[in-house]
Amino acid sequence: MKDETVYTLKKIGFYTVIFTAVAWILIPIIVSFLYGFTSKADYYDPHMVIPHHYTTEYVRVILFTLGAWDGIKNSTIVATLTIIISFILGIPAGYSIAKFVFPGKDTIKLSIIALRMFPIPVMAIPLIILYIRLHLADTLLGVALAHTAMALPFVVLITSSIFSGVSKEYEEAAMVFGLTRLGSFLKITLPLALPGLAAAAMFTFVMSWNEVFVASVLTLTHRTLPAQILSIMAGSSGGAAPDYYKFAAAFIMTLPAMLFIFFARKYLVTMWGITLK
């Protein structure tokens, strides 16, 4: 009997800790979403913990008056460009590391991992000089190129691990039955790797979507969403923005990324396990 009580207590304790952790993560998100739609009067009423009156006014103002909608468009363009460029460059490299044996491979792989330890975003500061010269400053392509540099090590490592997950024998079988190496890659390996690659793409998207430093440094008028929000909300200069605008902004920024990751959630743990080894 005593053992059973201890067991039950342990179980209750366990679930309490888990519940607390989950609540700690979820409550701020829920609260900020709620407050993003709360009417001014309810928000400034200290007794109204859970507001009663809601409005979409702030979200609309942020989106259409303060330029967040353009920011969303710009962010989408930058993120898409980043995916395209980093995949064009990254997939061949990942495939090569996964499927070939060649001298110097370990060194190359290690240096890619080492490059990941380099704070590429802050390097946007000196980069701006080159951008001004090349007329890339304040362009979305410029931001995408820098984001590509940031995402590329991840893309190479993720794709290489995805490709090595596809058995070499499938491809060899295809080659035995008459396909070229490129043909067997396109017809066999790529379709099998597709779900993983899609998840990697979402990952890259979110990485670019959330990046603020590079975007703020390299653009002035063509702001991505985080850069735009930062410039209208930031503490010292934009401290004047009323609170509820901040929450509406948080909502606008968070929702798309959360949806994206929701679709890629199956791969989350393994993918980070891979990239961060």
Partner: peptide, 19 residues
């Protein structure tokens, strides 16, 4: 527990401002 992975530091700051 992994939801915050998707949230940028800017958004994270704004969310905690609401708290």
């Amino acid at each position: 527990l992994v939801i915050p992975l998707t949230i940028s530091d800017v958004a994270g700051g704004l969310i905690w401002y609401s708290m």
